[in-house]
Simulated scan of single mutants.
Amino acid sequence: MKYKYNTPYSIGRQLNLATSASNALVSKLLEPHDLSLAQWTVLSSLWQNGELSVKSLAEIKGNAPPATSRIVDRMLSGGLVERSQNRHDRRAVTVGLSQKGEDLRHLQSIYEEVNVILLEPLSPEESENFFKLLNSVEQAGRTWLAQSKVGDD
């Protein structure tokens, strides 16, 4: 992609641009179902795992629990999920699918459609290598962060 401005050759910038395009694509596909990407990720977690605590949903999503709680609250208002008392800890609350949320289960694999669209220019081998490379970049960042915390004590 050619830009008329000078821009740095930055992994972070390119990942942000790719993420933005991917999120816009997913949002467009979810729009007819009146779902946001954040809501879909909660539903997807529940479709795959059953009832979960807000804390567990936050861990899966990679969000802070308060942000996840706000998403869940909006989903409760929209009738997509239900809250119930945890069977094992009466102080805790779990989030589960409502019938409306269950009825959207056909959207569970929408990421596969997104992958097909985004990876269309790549061969199967390039696609496989792309995921391996992304994983390597992620791990390098996490390793550096973990090592940088050792000296911060």
Rank of each mutant, 00 (worst) to 15 (best):
I117A: 03
K61V: 09
R83E: 12
H88T: 06
S77P: 00
G79H: 02
N86G: 01
V116F: 10
G78M: 02
D89F: 03
I60K: 13
N86V: 00
P124W: 06
E102G: 14
I60V: 10
I71G: 04
V116Y: 06
S84I: 04
S98V: 14
I60E: 12
T94G: 00
D89S: 02
L104G: 10
G78E: 11
E102K: 15
L97W: 04
N86E: 04
V81F: 08
L122D: 11
L119N: 08
L122Y: 02
R91F: 02
G79K: 01
S123T: 15
K61M: 13
G101V: 08
T94E: 03
I110P: 02
T94D: 02
E113V: 09
V114G: 00
S84V: 08
G62P: 15
Q99M: 13
D73R: 14
A64N: 10
P124Q: 05
E59L: 04
P66Y: 05
P124L: 06
L104V: 14
L104W: 03
D103Y: 07
G79Y: 02
E126K: 15
R105P: 00
V72R: 07
S69N: 13
M75C: 01
A67V: 14
V95P: 02
R70V: 11
L76C: 15
L119F: 09
Q85V: 15
V72A: 13
A67G: 07
S109E: 15
L104A: 13
K61I: 14
S84P: 00
Q99G: 04
A64P: 06
R91M: 03
P66M: 01
D103S: 11
S84E: 08
G62H: 01
S56Q: 06
A92N: 02
H106K: 09
I117L: 08
E126V: 06
E82A: 10
R91C: 01
M75W: 02
V95F: 08
Q85D: 12
R90H: 05
G101W: 09
L76M: 15
V81K: 08
N63P: 04
G96S: 15
R91Y: 03
S69F: 07
E59N: 11
E126H: 10
L118I: 15
V95K: 02
G79D: 01
R70C: 09
I71A: 03
V95T: 04
S123H: 10
R74G: 15
K61P: 00
R91E: 06
L122G: 06
P124V: 04
I71R: 07
H88A: 15
L122K: 03
E112D: 08
L122C: 11
S84K: 05
E126Y: 12
L97Y: 06
R83G: 08
L118K: 11
P66Q: 05
E59R: 05
E82P: 03
V95L: 06
L80G: 10
